[in-house]
Amino acid sequence: MLFDVGRLLHEEFLAVYRAAAADADGWEDAAVAVAHRVGSRLRSGKVPVAHVVVALRSTDRLLTEAMLDDGGDARALASAGTALAAELMSSFCVADDGLADAVLAGGAPDGAAAFYTVVSVRGALVDRVVNAFRRRGTVLRASSGHLLLPVSEGAALALCREVCAEIGGEVWLCVAERPAARVPLARREVDEIDALVSSLGRPPGVYRIDDMLFESALVETPEVRDELDRVVAPLLANPVLVETVLALLEADGNRAVAVRKLFIHRSTIDYRLWQIEELTGLSPVNPRDLAVLGTAIGMSRANAWG
């Protein structure tokens, strides 16, 4: 496939330069996303890096001059150019990308570390997360969107928490460590944890298998899954009771707190709890039964059985 690289860059980057010239909010994120998209397109089109560098230079000059003529902010334009160029060129650092895919596929190619922690990313742009990790050390990015860190799970946990705090907002990272030859197992593990965290509606943060242990055991045991379905079926027909279970769970089983959250009278919640026990055979007043009810509701809602 032949590219008019200069034209492609001009068209794609125009909006970013415009936003930067006007100093509009969020142009930095847009720059990262655009540059990465264009970069992968050029790479998959096997465009030589030398061509890209030449095109990048002239595009930057043309766009910067045009924006300056319109009275754009010169400092912002300069940093937009740098951000776009850096992101675009990082797509051409193919060595680590190929390695990530090879390791994730179960090969332990030359240059691979002895072990890796696989990280799954949900809720944030993978590019932003990669950049945040890159500032803290080595990170490989696979085409599946998984990241590989050549560190132990404990060290990766700490890094992930820092990255989550830096990025802020709703980000879920799941981690699992394995020796290089068994990285596919780690990938499966993070995907399973992420599916559970997502279907059970757990808050944003960093998760590993220890945080979801008994839930994963529940999902893996067929007779338990069937029984959970039977327990929760009569409850699902009554949204008010479902809401009551979830509110009570969120209130750590404290009825007074749940009552305030639901805007109902104390005697109303007592009646509902009695109904729940009649329908399910589990007592929401008992914290362990309450946790099982919450898990059953979460799983049935997301239809996590697959």
Binding site: F214, A217, L218, E220, T221, V224, T280, L282, V292
Partner: peptide
């Protein structure tokens, strides 16, 4: 149903 979580874990030695 009264022992679901414990039961599941007894059946999954790695967990």
């Amino acid at each position: 149903r009264n022992v679901l979580a414990d039961f599941a874990v007894l059946r999954r030695p790695h967990v």
